[in-house]
């Protein structure tokens, strides 16, 4: 299976990465090489094998329902590119 330039543009859009035509073309060749390499894996017989999403085959640990964190807003917002009145600012959101 190989990708085409439109595929690259579609995934770039899904991933919210601005990409020029030129970049898409260059990336396309690399991605096809990589998927060519990945293809080998697909030949393995994995019938009935439980997917392993984690090296630890355990159960999730839970925490008690208690307020343990009083956020320091000043500190938490210190890295914001734009902010006002304790809010993060972004270009107008239209719904």
């Amino acid at each position: 299976m190989s990708l085409c330039k439109e595929d690259v543009q579609r995934i770039a859009h899904l991933a919210r990465l601005a990409i020029t035509d030129d970049e898409a073309r260059r990336t396309l060749a690399q991605l096809n090489d990589i998927f060519g390499m990945i293809e080998r894996m697909r030949a393995v017989d994995t019938e009935g094998i439980e997917p392993m999403s984690h090296p630890l085959d355990g159960a999730q640990r839970l925490r008690a329902d208690a307020v343990t964190d009083i956020p320091d807003r000043e500190r938490n917002l210190a890295n914001a590119p734009a902010r006002q009145d304790g809010l993060f600012l972004v270009p107008r959101v239209i719904e």
């Binding site: 919210r16 734009a82 972004v90 270009p91 239209i94």
Partner: peptide, 20 residues
Amino acid sequence: DGVRYGHRAKDHGDLADMIK
């Protein structure tokens, strides 16, 4: 995504464009 921290593009159009 340039909203809460990290790089935000200087030149951008709408919100989606800013993120991209």
